[in-house]
């Protein structure tokens, strides 16, 4: 009874169950999102005075002195390096911490904790450490964009390794005990176990962790703002910071900022689509098996 009936609720309950969330969602997301797309084709200083300029903002965004392409390059390079380092280290820590050794819980607790600290605070903690080390060489982190780059990589590793490690641990603990036993009886070497049992069975966790690190790194803002603020100049600015500075750093560039934001959104959406495809395929493969 009732399963295929559309009107499960009498009409008035729409106002109780759905409307409050929907209004808040419209005010903080739907309206700003649509307005944002529209304004990216206009010149404006506030949301009500847009003047249509066509693709001009997009052309300006890609022009040499807008800093957008430099920021994109910096962001991509940073994302690739930190995704690889975070996941490799997190995976091996997870392997080490799933052997039932004493103190395992304590170590898991320690590795996971930085993940709970906010980006601004993280940025200033590492600014002290990195500037402290660099002070022996008479420079600081704003001396070169390369310092900022590696500073961000170290910070990201510190923040995300514990998080990814926990997901890998959950994946490794899901490996059925019988398979491990059977492999041991068959005389599998530790390396063979890793290659043919551990890695294939934790593949779904690998996909999750890779994309989590990837999107987290790609969208990073707070850490970037606190650690280097984009210095020197804007050479260590990532995309999110570059967009922020276009909006609020220079007067009259709001339209260009919004165009950059739309491009940023499109890239992030593409990454999400690829992830969805891969996860779906993983699920189907799993069913076939």
């Amino acid at each position: 009874m009732g399963k295929h009936r559309q009107g499960y609720f009498p009409k008035k309950y729409f106002f109780v169950f759905l409307l409050p969330t929907l209004l808040a969602f419209a005010v903080s997301f739907v309206i700003p999102f649509i307005l944002g797309i529209y304004l990216s084709f206009t010149e404006f200083t506030t949301v009500t005075d847009g003047r249509w300029v066509g693709l001009q903002n997009y052309i300006s965004a890609f022009s040499g002195d807008s800093g957008f392409l430099d920021a994109l390059l910096f962001t991509v390079r940073f994302t690739v390096v930190s995704t690889v380092t975070v996941n490799v280290i997190a995976f091996f820590l997870a392997l080490a911490l799933t052997r039932g050794k004493k103190g395992t819980n304590f170590f898991r607790t320690v590795f996971f904790m930085p993940n709970l600290i906010g980006g601004i605070v993280l940025g200033y903690i590492w600014q002290l450490i990195i500037n402290g080390v660099l002070s022996y060489f008479g420079v600081d982190i704003t001396y070169s964009a390369e310092y900022g780059f590696w500073g961000l990589v170290i910070l990201t590793n510190w923040q995300l390794i514990g998080y990814m490690m926990i997901i890998y641990i959950a994946g490794i603990n899901n490996i059925p005990g019988e398979i491990v036993e059977a492999a041991k009886i068959d005389g599998a070497s530790p390396f063979g176990m890793l290659r043919y049992i551990t890695i294939p069975t934790v593949m779904p966790s690998v996909t999750i962790c890779l994309f989590l690190t990837l999107t987290n790194s790609f969208k990073m803002f707070d850490q970037n703002l606190a650690l280097t603020g984009g210095a020197p100049g804007r050479e260590s600015s990532m995309l999110a910071l570059d967009i922020y500075k276009t909006f609020y750093g220079r007067v009259g560039e709001e339209g260009v900022g919004q165009a950059k934001a739309v491009i940023f959104f499109v890239i992030v959406a593409l990454i999400a689509l690829i992830q969805l495809r891969l996860t779906d395929r993983n699920k189907k493969d799993g069913k076939k098996r």
């Binding site: 005010v27 309206i31 999102f33 949301v47 959104f265």
Partner: peptide, 28 residues
């Protein structure tokens, strides 16, 4: 449709709506 709109909002980065959202919040 409403459900998919909620899901869609998860992939939109904050920078996309930050300017317009803060203005709308201000107006309201």
């Amino acid at each position: 449709g409403i459900y998919y709109a909620f899901v869609f909002s998860m992939i939109v980065p904050f920078q996309m709506v930050m300017f317009t959202m803060s203005k709308v919040a201000n107006i309201l």
